[in-house]
Design a binder for these strands. Structure first.
Lengths: 242, 242
DNA sequence: TCAAGTTGTCTATATTGTTAGACAACTTGA
DNA sequence: TCAAGTTGTCTAACAATATAGACAACTTGA
């Protein structure tokens, strides 16, 4: 009992947890930054280190902080709230959260359509597809790896264009496509593989959200189909009902 | 552990005490009336009678209730008596009632002065104003939401300072303002809107008291102008004549 | 490679919170 | 006067909270 001497009915660990949470909320402890060490926190709150640990444990359970043994405890970025609606644009969604969207082309190649890809795009199995692999960021934090398949015939120059404009929406605009919408969205989850882990700067064994989707133009003609892998700890999908 | 099953860090007696205090504040337990018996309270909160007793003890210590052996426990606390005089300090007024004043900054932004605000503050229309929205408590009971406007140039750092000291008076003291007084006060009433209802923990449709005021320093220079919305059921303004 | 600094885990002890039961002291109204 | 209902007080047991110290496991940078 050092914060106040009279019993308040509010446990010390709770007071410490609330104090730290307030610090995160108001930016005294920015996302990604290291918190003071447990010993330091214990000292500033004049409380035992175990009490601080309990406070941090509740915050970690809620995903607000992440402890790294031997290194420190870090503020987790608040999850990006990602609405799943028919008009889904990564750049708009990220921008709406006050963060800067960024895309980076990490690979492009031509490959023949599997049966499923062909079905999604309304093409024949084996038709040539342009595959674009992109890494997408909110500010400097990688959010997802997206693999997009488009008709190689219709969108022959898509790769260099995407590389320049760094936005799917703008790239499609180059082909005269003013608007498009999501025809289908399927969400599942898995454990990240080594390749994606490296791209997303994610520890092995962490969960990812996998979104399979197909975008169509105003007439319903398929434009592209894609599989995106999101770092689960950085996003939160919001399904809007109604 | 019956109110919730996970440990919350808030003692049961404290939760009961807060619940009863809320009931007194919002009129479910009017001043002078008898509370339900300790056994009844224990039953409604699904808690031991001793726990209720501890809750009542803390309320009694603060003068909110008075226990009469053999008869019952009665509500003491009348509405917060809030004198409207030229030297009006929320913290002093609440403190004088034996309750603990508290302030919480709920928002701050820069906005241009409307004609009326400019007039109150002796500035030009459109001048940059710092707007501070604060929620003020007596103990744990929200009393009013106050929107304060100050010159953004003169009080550039007011928001973080207020956040720290949680008192308008102390914040102004940081700017070397030792004393100030109320130049004008206007009182009206309305029905609470949804936003204020949530902040004040007030049911929709309940009345609020609206106070528009301007504070000036010893020389008569305007310092801040504000609009406060009080939960009508929790305060009683006292106008002292003479 | 090593030292310093970090989080993770264990044991132990004291204090506070919560429940349970019993009975005393008192008030109220029939 | 008496029964019912109230608050006051006591003992007892257990759970949750808090402190203390020691050491392991790990990361970082010199």
């Amino acid at each position: 009992m050092t914060i106040q001497d009279k019993p308040t009915g509010v446990a010390l660990w709770r007071q410490v947890a609330d104090g730290i949470e307030r610090g995160i909320a108001d930016g005294r402890f920015p996302a990604g930054e290291k918190l003071p060490g447990e010993t330091d926190i214990a000292e500033t709150y004049r409380v035992n280190r175990h009490t601080v640990r309990r406070a941090l444990a509740t915050l970690a359970e809620r995903g607000l902080v992440r402890a790294e043994r031997g290194s420190g405890t870090y503020v987790e970025a608040p999850k990006l709230s990602y609405p799943l609606r028919s008009r889904t644009r990564f750049s708009e969604i990220v921008g709406a959260g006050g963060r800067e969207p960024r895309g980076q082309l990490i690979g492009s190649l031509i490959e023949p359509a599997t049966r499923e890809l062909a079905k999604n795009l309304g093409l024949k199995t084996g038709a040539p597809l342009l595959r674009l692999d992109a890494l997408r960021f909110a500010d400097r934090t990688p959010i997802c790896v997206a693999t997009n398949w488009l008709s190689a015939e219709r969108f022959a120059e898509a790769a260099p264009i995407y590389e320049r404009v760094r936005s799917m929406t703008k790239m499609l605009a180059h082909y005269g496509i003013k608007d498009y919408r999501r025809r289908s969205t399927r969400v599942t989850a898995a454990i990240v593989d080594a390749s994606d882990a490296a791209k997303l700067d994610l520890a092995l064994g962490r969960p990812i959200l996998i979104v399979d989707s197909t975008d169509v133009d105003a007439d319903g003609t398929p434009l592209l189909t894609s599989r995106s892998r999101f770092a689960a700890e950085r996003v939160e999908f919001v399904v809007e009902n109604g």
